[in-house]
């Protein structure tokens, strides 16, 4: 079962998570331990990377229009900064006493804090990216809601012109997202729903065209044609709602899928 829900987050955090776990085990197994080496340089490298992340993070917060990102990201940055301070303190303490137990504990706490803070930050950023895809999905849903008021060929042409680019964008972004997910069931659900949307869209347009033609001829069958069109628009909407639901899943609760 994967721990991280996207391949990008996994590739960034998994190696360091393994290193930290290993250090914790080593620390527990060798409680007295050997003398710690001078960690000033590697700690300085972490501190520099943290300063850069905080700078980049603040710039992201300032330029973003996503209120949730603005709300959540500062706490993650503070967490990373606090963890870096713990590492600096540990390094200073180990310089004085390379066997210091409190320093070792600080070192582990700091490394864990960096891992957790970076993880929170990546999650904030990822959720914001997901919200962008969801906005695109909702735009398509808005267009689908308009399908039942289209009664002329001119309006249908405009409808297709409006819907096509949004649908292409949703298709590209959801496809990319599904490839990014580490959870196979989520990935397959996104692919299946997206395939349905892509299959249904030309059929919907065709049903709208048939409805308009029947309406023009003042035939009684227009009710049936409208029903068929509404059914197809409804099916597409259902698939898009399912895409939105799965896009927001980040947990691995298998019970949910039972």
């Amino acid at each position: 079962m994967p721990v991280f829900h996207t391949k990008t987050i996994e590739s960034i955090l998994e190696p360091v998570a393994q290193q930290v776990s290993r250090l914790v085990i080593l620390h527990e197994e060798a409680e007295d331990g050997n003398a710690m080496p001078d960690l000033e340089k590697p700690v300085l490298a972490v501190s520099r990377a943290v300063v850069n992340l905080v700078k980049v993070g603040r710039s992201t917060i300032e330029s973003s229009e996503d209120s949730l990102l603005k709300q959540d990201m500062p706490a993650a940055l503070l967490r990373v900064e606090a963890a870096a301070r713990l590492l600096e303190e540990a390094s200073s303490m180990l310089k004085v006493d390379p066997y210091s137990q409190p320093a070792r504990k600080k070192l582990i706490e700091g490394a864990r804090g960096i891992l957790q803070g970076t993880s929170s930050l990546l999650l904030c950023f990822d959720e914001s990216e997901v919200r962008k895809i969801i906005r695109e999905c909702k735009t398509v849903l808005d267009y689908l809601a308009v399908a039942e008021v289209i009664e002329t060929m001119e309006d249908l042409i405009q409808f297709v012109k409006d819907l096509s680019p949004c649908l292409t964008k949703v298709s590209r972004e959801v496809d990319h997202r599904s490839q990014e997910l580490t959870h196979q069931v989520h990935r397959e659900t996104l692919t299946r729903c997206l395939d349905s949307v892509k299959t249904l869209s030309p059929i919907l347009i065709c049903s709208m065209k048939i409805f308009i033609q029947i309406l023009r001829q003042h035939c009684r069958e227009s009710d049936e044609a409208a029903e068929n069109r509404n059914y197809l628009a409804g099916r597409m909407s259902d698939e898009l709602h399912e895409i939105i639901r799965v896009l927001q899943l980040t947990t691995y609760d298998e019970d949910e899928w039972d």
């Binding site: 990008t8 960034i12 955090l13 190696p15 360091v16 290193q19 930290v20 290993r22 250090l23 080593l26 620390h27 197994e29 060798a30 007295d32 331990g33 050997n34 003398a35 710690m36 080496p37 960690l39 590697p42 700690v43 490298a45 972490v46 520099r48 990377a49 943290v50 850069n52 992340l53 980049v56 993070g57 992201t60 990373v80 590492l87 070192l107 490394a111 960096i114 891992l115 970076t118 930050l121 990546l122 950023f125």
Partner: peptide, 29 residues
Amino acid sequence: EIILEACKSIAAATGALVKAAGTAQRELV
């Protein structure tokens, strides 16, 4: 994205630090 690159740098630096700290302990275990 720049923020992903910044996170990668932190992860790499932390990994190197933890590895350096772990090496001394490993000798004892």
